[in-house]
Design a protein around this nucleic acid. Structure first.
Length: 406
DNA sequence: CGAGATTCATGTGAAGTATACCTTTAGGCTTAA
DNA sequence: AAGCCTAAAGGTATACTTCACATGAATCTCGTA
């Protein structure tokens, strides 16, 4: 055994990697030169720049679909601004918070708690009155003069779950602060998001707005080219592959993040199989793998009741004839059946209805409320995953639930 | 035949409950003077 | 008497339940042409 492993590692080391620098393809990587976003970056930077003169910048709102460079651009600006601020001893703080992350910032309490933690306070996950947490946050903030720029990514999630009160409070915070000042940068990918928001919140939050349009196929191609050049060794990635990748991404509403991920995963696959070049087949496998991994990750982070609900949906979907959507009642009765083989206590239909809504939000299923006239009203539910990975997801669900399945 | 009433199956909002966790406080015990 | 620890009291957030009302188009009803 040991000998085989030794050989394996030696072989492994003697092979040169396909990657020159894989980090370049990671979505968290911030290139020095962000392509095709000059206009947006300049505008945003202009709006935020007063912070460097210790003036309070306007609140700002960034719109744009996923993978259109919003997060990347703001992080880029954030980095540059912090550098300048550090050099000149300007008390500038910038906090980035993704509201979509579970147990992180999806309620008012958790949002403020997280903010207070940024300022070095330790806040328990529950138990304290929200006001109290606000106060700790306030006082920590006002201890000394600071200009704070607060970046709330995926802010629509927060508003949908917790209402707009939290944001309203944040935008009004300045009037209570003596030393410091706060401005809020909201980021969202749903354009219709601000419709159901309190107009006061809406107007104070979007004093300024910057729109990030989706990249077109050519732009994606040049992005991929510039990244791939640094990421791969020469000759690993043929021109043709880049073209295919960008065409694919353009089809997916210009999502550059996906395109880069596709390229990276394809590269990893090729490398693992000992191929010297990335080929079409790697791209295709990568496409599958990415979706599978993504769904897997979401599912694993889900509480077991949601998992069981999803399992019920998937099993029903498998049983029922093609095309025929499933509705809430069926799911609930099947869910109750399933829960009998489980240590889980069955929840009410009311709650399951909410869970279905949550699964919809996560994009694992598509649920649409339809009124079927004489036959009542329900949600029509479809799985939102490509054919072929369902089996694997089902298996995963069963594994996850194995602890509780009898 | 058509306008309006009815109906069904569930969506959805509000209020209540259980649980887990927090801080404060009061009591009891220890310690030091 | 002061200091320290513990356990109970009183309070909160969150996930869930209970109750009750809202929805909205297919279908039914019944007056009318």
């Amino acid at each position: 055994m040991g000998i085989e492993l030794n050989k394996f590692f030696e072989d492994y080391m003697s092979k040169t990697s396909l990657f020159k620098n894989k980090d370049v393809l990671q979505s968290k990587h911030i290139p020095d030169d962000i392509l095709h976003r000059d206009e947006q970056i300049n505008k945003t930077a202009n709006i935020l720049a007063p912070a460097l003169r210790e003036e309070n910048p306007s609140n700002l709102f960034l719109y744009g679909q996923t993978g259109s460079g919003k997060t990347l651009s703001i992080k880029y600006i954030m980095e540059k601004m912090k550098n300048t601020a550090d050099k000149k001893d300007i008390p500038l703080e910038m906090f980035y918070l993704n509201c979509k992350l579970k147990k992180c910032a999806d309620t008012e309490y958790r949002l403020v708690a997280q903010l207070a933690r940024f300022l070095g306070k330790s806040i328990p996950p529950t138990g304290l009155p929200t006001d109290e947490v606000y106060n700790t946050f306030f006082s920590a903030l006002d201890e000394e003069r600071k200009i704070v720029i607060l970046i709330l990514d995926e802010i629509d999630h927060l508003v949908r779950k917790a209402g707009d009160e939290a944001i309203y409070n944040l935008t009004r915070i300045n009037s209570d602060l003596k030393n410091s000042q706060v401005s809020v940068v909201g980021i969202t990918n749903s354009l219709s998001f601000s419709n159901n928001m309190d107009p006061r919140v809406k107007s104070s939050l979007s004093e300024e707005e910057v729109l990030f349009p989706a990249y077109d196929a050519l732009q994606i191609r040049s992005i991929l080219e510039s990244r791939a050049e640094n990421a791969f060794h020469d000759g690993v990635l043929k021109e043709e592959m880049i073209r295919k990748c960008s065409a694919y991404a353009a089809r997916e509403h210009g999502d550059a993040r996906r395109a880069l991920e596709l390229l990276r995963v394809a590269g990893e696959l090729a490398e693992r199989r000992g191929d010297e070049k990335i080929r079409i087949k790697h791209l295709n496998i990568a496409e599958d793998k990415i979706e599978k991994d993504k769904i897997q990750e979401i599912i694993k982070s889900q509480p077991s009741q949601s998992q069981l609900t999803l399992l019920a949906i998937m099993q029903l979907d498998q049983q029922s004839d093609e095309k025929k959507p499933i509705c809430t009642g069926d799911i609930y009765s099947y869910y109750k059946e399933l829960s009998k083989n489980t240590t889980l206590r069955p929840l009410t239909q009311r709650r399951i209805s909410d869970i279905i809504g949550e699964l919809d939000m996560l994009g694992i299923i598509n649920a649409k409320v339809v009124s079927k006239g004489r036959f009542g009203r329900t949600r029509e539910i479809n799985l939102a995953m490509t054919q072929g990975i369902e089996d694997r997801v089902r298996t995963l669900l069963k594994e996850e639930l194995e602890v509780s399945l009898a």
